[in-house]
Amino acid sequence: MISLLHVTKTYPRTGDAVADVSLTLNKGEFCFLTGHSGAGKSTIMRLIHMAERPTSGEVRVSGYSSTTIRPREIALLRRKIGYCFQDFRLLQDRTAAENVAFALEVTGAKPQVIRTKVPRLLAQVGLASKAEALPSQLSGGEQQRVAMARALVHEPLVVLADEPTGNLDERATRGIFDLLQHINQSGTAVLLATHNLELVRANPDVRVIELDHGRLVYDSAAEEVRS
């Protein structure tokens, strides 16, 4: 479903952010993407989201290739990719429900679809009672749940979660991770970028890909094949 083939991303000032990385993420898979700050985790996410094009190599996502995709197709592809960030990126002047509705509205969903879908998504992330709360009235964990509800509006094939627990305490982290697992159980692949090694160690069954200075240095799936 997602393939990176010998992908290198070079920035003029800072050099290689990602160097010759090849990996595959299958449909319905859950995977940690780990590495220190600046290892290239976010760049990998942005390459999959087609917010960046590789300097060399190719990114393939759900039948689209970074070498041939057109701008309009990028918009359509992104509806198949949910994206969550460490800083949530919610609109502060809109309620939780309005933040979720916004993602539907700007992609052309009809009002009756929005009316039925938004409460269902908020219930799915455990925020049915906070629909009318502004982000400033929600805890960090709750704001991340709103961001996840927004990421799920188009029933994506994959959720890219870029350090979603980076700003959260231990309990909220556990809650978000459980939610991601729950999302994964319904068939959505999850790529979770984190440098929280405790979280990684606590879930030994989950595939782990590790980056170091832009290079892929460990992939537990490959290790399993090798062993």
Binding site: R72, L76, R89, V106
Partner: peptide, 15 residues
């Protein structure tokens, strides 16, 4: 910020 989120969730450039 709205524009960034619109791009994030797959709004078309024309929209």
């Amino acid at each position: 910020e709205e524009i960034a989120i619109m791009q994030l969730v797959g709004a078309t450039n024309w929209f």
